[in-house]
Design a protein around this nucleic acid. Structure first.
Length: 327
RNA sequence: GGGUAGGUGCCCGAGUGGCUAAAGGGGGCAGACUGUAAAUCUGCUGGCUUACGUCUACGAAGGUUCGAAUCCUUCCCUGCCCA
């Protein structure tokens, strides 16, 4: 990690919460008000060409305050939380970001990675990974599960979770470390944790409150051209590019491949995107539940004002860290 | 009007005498989560009951049978074909 002294007195504000809650718009208002900047922490808005479906900030919005880490990863490159961290720290140590920095997004895993840091193990090597995948295919999950259980009887990976199983085996074979050891070590050291003062604000709301927002947004996304956006990637041969498996794009790709000819397909496309988005929201809410350090607000105008007041308190205070526990 | 296929749990759909509260999928609910994370994975999902159990359920009503979603009769409804 590079020298961090430049940012000693800089304040960071996480603005997190489920999709379609209105984080970006709120954060933009605040960034304008305090002459700050915005950094993305959404795992899909990172990519170039997926702006419509991921409801990324528009050019007009980006003009109102500096935005970073949006639309900069090009297909067929695929991001990981680890690479995101590298990019994030590169950014804030190489550029002198204006004012308070708003870190905005709903990807719980990335937020956690940034806040707590990641395990000190090598990232997946493409070659090794391929080998592991072949091995898994040839010998089945049972053999992986047995191998992992022998080395780490306390691991909590399910036998059907092939992705996690393969990753655990990869780490085990290359470094000898087990999931249980890594977890224990991370709790003790927490060496790669976020090194700056920060405030975590979250927006969330009931399913009933979110549904109309999701419907409206889905209509808008469809009208704005997510179908063409998807089509262009498919035509370039990126059908297996992992971001295309994210909410919206997955449904559209499926629609283009299977029901394109049917007139009724369009309405069910709308419905299926709404459903997946609501499912995503549920998963995000489940993830955020365990986060004890976030100050939560609802989406109402009143709560937005309340959140703004808390922000103001933080920005004008001399305290370093202000979290839920601080109040 | 005639013929024909069919009506199954929130939805789709399997089941054609007992092992059926009824496969599977979707949806819903709850959860896990350290380099794919908007991904991946797990559990639950008719009522009452802690449980044993019991009640209600396979279009409706009757019937056959020790026993029916499954067989028979009539009726209602839906799709398709012929008039």
């Amino acid at each position: 990690m590079a020298e961090l002294t430049d940012n000693k007195d800089k304040k960071f504000i996480f603005v997190i919460g489920p999709t379609a809650i209105g984080k970006s718009q709120w954060a933009l208002q605040q960034a304008i008000k305090y002459q700050g900047s915005i950094v993305n922490i959404d795992s899909v808005q990172l990519y170039q060409g997926l702006e419509i479906g991921s409801a990324a900030p528009t050019a007009a919005e980006k003009k109102q305050a500096p935005h970073y880490l949006y639309s900069y990863v090009k297909a067929p490159q695929e991001m990981t939380a680890g690479v995101y961290l590298r990019d994030f720290y590169n950014l804030i140590t190489s550029e002198n970001l204006k004012g308070p920095v708003f870190i905005v997004g709903g990807t719980g895993f990335y937020i956690q990675a940034l806040e707590k840091g990641m395990y000190d193990v090598a990232p997946g090597d493409a070659k090794v990974r391929k080998q592991i995948e072949d091995d898994l295919k040839a010998n089945g999950a049972d053999s992986f599960f047995t191998e992992l259980s022998a080395a780490d009887p306390l691991h909590e990976i399910h036998i059907n979770d092939h992705y996690r199983l393969a990753r655990a085996i990869e780490i085990l074979r290359t470094s000898g470390a087990t999931p249980t050891q890594l977890k224990a070590k991370a709790v003790l050291q927490n060496a790669n944790a976020f090194p700056y003062p920060y405030l975590k604000l979250g927006f969330t709301d009931s399913k009933e409150a979110l549904l109309p927002r999701v419907q409206k947004r889905t209509r808008f996304i469809l009208d704005s051209g997510i179908i063409d956006e998807t089509k262009s990637f498919l035509e370039k041969g990126f059908a297996n590019w992992s971001p295309l498996a994210s909410v919206g794009y997955r449904e559209v790709a499926n629609y283009l491949i299977h029901n394109n000819s049917r007139a009724a397909g369009h309405e069910s496309l709308f419905e299926s995107i709404v459903t997946s988005t609501m499912q995503l929201i549920k998963k995000q809410k489940t993830w955020f539940q365990r986060d004890q350090a976030t100050l939560w607000f609802e989406s109402s105008a009143n709560d937005q004002l309340e959140a703004a007041a808390r922000l103001d308190l933080y920005l004008t205070s001399v305290d370093q860290n202000v979290t839920a526990k601080g109040y």
